[in-house]
């Protein structure tokens, strides 16, 4: 195992974050605060509590997930897209490095960064609403699993994209709608019966449901189901990455 290489890639990626620390942290914190002010306080004060949880608190897990997903994808996709775009990837590809080690460096750094941001968002939300966390270990586990699997997903997008537009496309066109329709701001059983069925095809529903359960002990689908879905998603992403590396997809001719 080429530990040195994993270390320098990881550090290099973390350094990039550190150099742009303000953008990295300020923008998610600001947008989450806005959500809290608008949905949590302004609208939330007129909303009923859901399953006994005040609306302001109810939306916290969804908001954290929203940030986590967008951040993981953005970090990981950019992290690999940029060297590909600038041509510096030649060095990584010609180094004595296994595919797994490359992943460990890039995806590890992206996941770490979104994990930190997730923590910061959670802390920020503490300023606006009362938070209780019933199952902290589960909460952290869901957080970590989500960071890893969506960083992997971002890595795939970064490998796939051959221009900046494509890099933005998936997050904008797919992830944002899925998160908004994934029960971030409502409980699935508030929907008409038909849409409740449709929503079960949205993988983000399982993520948010499981994550919310770790806070309040309430969920739209069973926790086991949530966990299984995340692991399934992780497995699919791993399989795709493995295939991409094996065929040299857009990395090797």
């Amino acid at each position: 195992m080429n530990i040195q290489a994993v270390k320098v890639i990881y550090q290099h990626e973390m350094m990039r974050t550190w150099n742009t620390i303000f953008q990295s942290i300020a923008s998610p914190v600001l947008s989450t605060s806005l959500y809290f002010i608008v949905f949590g306080s302004a609208i939330g004060s007129r909303m009923q509590s859901i399953d006994g949880v005040p609306y302001g608190s109810f939306i916290v897990p969804g908001l954290v997930m929203l940030t986590l997903l967008t951040q993981s994808i953005a970090n990981a996709s950019f992290g690999i897209f940029f060297p590909k775009f600038s041509g510096t990837i030649y060095e990584v590809m010609s180094a004595p490095l296994s595919h797994f080690e490359i992943l460990l460096g890039y995806v590890g750094a992206a996941a770490t960064k979104s994990f930190i941001i997730g923590g910061i968002i959670l802390a920020t939300s503490g300023f606006f609403v009362d938070l209780q966390i019933l199952h902290p270990v589960w909460m952290i586990s869901f957080l970590i699993l989500t960071c890893i699997s969506f960083s992997l997903f971002g890595f795939i997008i970064g490998l796939w994209a051959d221009n900046f537009e494509k890099l933005q496309l998936i997050p904008l066109l797919v992830i944002t709608p899925l998160v908004f329709l994934g029960g971030s701001f409502y409980s699935v059983d508030m929907l008409p019966a038909f849409w409740q069925k449709v929503t079960l095809f949205n993988p983000v529903v399982y993520l948010i449901s499981g994550f919310r359960w770790s806070f309040f002990g309430i969920s739209d689908v069973s926790v086991g189901m949530s966990l299984a879905m995340i692991l399934l998603f992780l497995a699919i992403c791993l399989a795709i990455v493995a295939w991409m590396f094996k065929t040299g997809y857009r990395l090797k001719s």
């Binding site: 080429n2 040195q4 290489a5 270390k7 320098v8 060095e91 180094a95 004595p96 490095l97």
Partner: peptide, 11 residues
């Protein structure tokens, strides 16, 4: 340069 050195597995 340090990055490159590390990539190739050198301390």
């Amino acid at each position: 340069l340090s990055f490159s050195r590390g990539l190739f597995g050198k301390k």
